[in-house]
Design a protein around this nucleic acid. Structure first.
Lengths: 209, 209
DNA sequence: CACGCTTGTTGGCGGAACGCCAATAAGGGT
DNA sequence: ACCCTTATTGGCGTTCCGCCAACAAGCGTG
């Protein structure tokens, strides 16, 4: 990453961007506390003091990296009115979202914190374990054992569902945009709908389609 | 939190637990790097060296705190024989989940990382801002402006939905338990179902020309 | 009651990292 | 060729962490 020979002067903006890039590289692999400014400076082929000169503090540098990562560059929406049903509009926007996630995979995962950003990989493991426990708990509750055909998909669905449960609960407990009853209805409705689509056999007596 | 006079000897397990409690208190309010072991020791009314004596390193102490927080104590499931329909089982387990979240509100939010755990509040703000942007983007895409009646709820629902989108995408891109098509179907289906239940007016007539 | 042994506890040493600032020199303008 | 702007450096003081030897509180023993 050290693109310039020692001591060479660069344009301020250029140098700043270069250091930022190195910091991004390092912070995306190791947790905040495990990355030193000296390391960042080293990677950029620059004296440590210069990092502080451009970003003030290590924390400020970190914040800037995160801010850069978390900026999702959402694709432009198609003209309103060009779509017929709500379903079509929804499908379109979801496709765009998925494209975006697939293309910027690295960046996007880092921003989400899934691949572990400044977050400690070990911490990530603990959290993931807890989520997995909840998922297994739900699977048991709806009477799904491991050897069911298509279990992997079901597993993934339930894991995804816990994401919905967490986010909606935050809307309820933190932002107050949803009531408990609404969260409940939201979870039951969406989970039922998805199960109906993917494993219709589970529903027993009621088997549409 | 300093329950014992200076220099008093405690049982090893007791002292350990006390320090852990203080660490938990501090780490839940400020990010990792902003909490010093000296502070933890101070809060426990103990010499700094003792923290290292019991936990080795600051990081190990932190990991233990997180591990303690992330342990969700899931309520026992009802007898598998007593379940009626899938819907009933689902409603039951979701109610249990919501109870659990409501009761342990503090702890649970901390574990999720929503209230910001060892995570930097400022970082949290950035991430939340990015999520909000996505939510607004989706709202625009499905043709919902701000002054719609029941907009708050819709807003919350979409925010919750982004949680589902993120989690399912992680299942797709990281764990490989879902394919892209499955994620797509999952998102479309659940979002449509929920919209149908909450704002049925949106579905009927579209194309306001 | 005195003594000693176990072990919880302390205080400080050495190293690493961070924020800051004055000194330096690179590169363009005159 | 000179100077003047400013990117860049190197080091000082401070804070924080991991480690360890010394200390003493409390219990058992004679």
């Amino acid at each position: 990453m050290a693109t310039t020979p020692k001591g060479r002067r660069l344009d301020a903006d250029e140098r700043r961007a270069q250091i930022l890039a190195c910091a991004r590289e390092l912070f995306s692999r190791r947790p905040y506390a495990a990355v030193s400014t000296a390391e960042v400076a080293d990677a950029a082929g620059v004296a440590r003091g210069l990092v502080n000169h451009y970003f003030g503090t290590k924390r400020a540098l970190y914040l800037e990296v995160v801010g850069e990562l978390a900026n999702p560059e959402l694709p432009a929406l198609p003209d309103p009115g060009s779509h017929g049903s709500l379903q079509e509009a929804l499908e379109a926007v979801i496709d765009m979202w998925l494209d975006q996630a697939e293309d910027n995979r690295e960046t996007w995962l880092a921003a989400i914190g899934a691949g572990g950003f400044g977050r400690d990989p070990e911490i990530e493991l603990i959290i993931d374990g807890a989520r997995e426990e909840v998922a297994q708990w739900i699977l048991r509750a709806i009477g799904v054992g491991a050897p069911v055909p298509g279990f992997e998909e079901l597993h993934g669905i339930v894991r995804a569902f816990t994401g919905l449960a967490e986010a909606s609960s935050v809307e309820w407990l933190v932002h107050g945009r949803l009531s408990r009853d609404q969260v409940r209805a939201l979870l039951v409705s969406s989970m039922l709908g998805v199960l109906r689509d993917v494993v219709p056999g589970l529903l027993g007596d009621r088997t549409p389609s």
